[in-house]
């Protein structure tokens, strides 16, 4: 699974994308955020405030209860500020 990070999430985590092997027990976005948070202080710090995290699965906005599976492209980012 490919995971992409944007804006201050990218800066706090220290990379723009990575490939991960999704653990078998992780089946939705909320589970992925919990699992990522346990990977180190930079992840824990970046993912603390869930209310300012938005998620896209395969380039579509989703909510935290959205299912995910191996091969998906997941993007984590703050609320958008374009225009």
């Amino acid at each position: 699974m490919k995971v992409l990070y944007f804006a201050w999430l990218r800066q706090k985590i220290g990379m723009s994308e990575e490939s991960i092997d999704l653990p078998a027990h992780v089946s939705d976005v909320a589970g992925l955020l919990d699992w990522l948070s346990d990977r180190g202080p930079e992840f824990a710090d970046a993912l603390t405030h869930r209310q300012v995290i938005r998620v896209a699965v395969n380039q579509e906005h989703v909510t935290f209860d959205a299912p995910i599976k191996a091969g998906d492209e997941i993007a984590l980012f703050p609320p958008v500020t374009g225009g």
């Binding site: 944007f6 804006a7 703050p78 609320p79 958008v80 374009g82 225009g83």
Partner: peptide, 26 residues
């Protein structure tokens, strides 16, 4: 414009005399 501002995946980082910061959604 309204939907673009709340849905299109763009993020603004602003540089002022106070430094650089990511713009918060309004």
């Amino acid at each position: 414009m309204d939907w673009l501002k709340t849905k299109a995946p763009f993020w603004k980082e602003e540089e002022t005399g106070a430094g650089t910061r990511w713009v918060a959604a309004k």
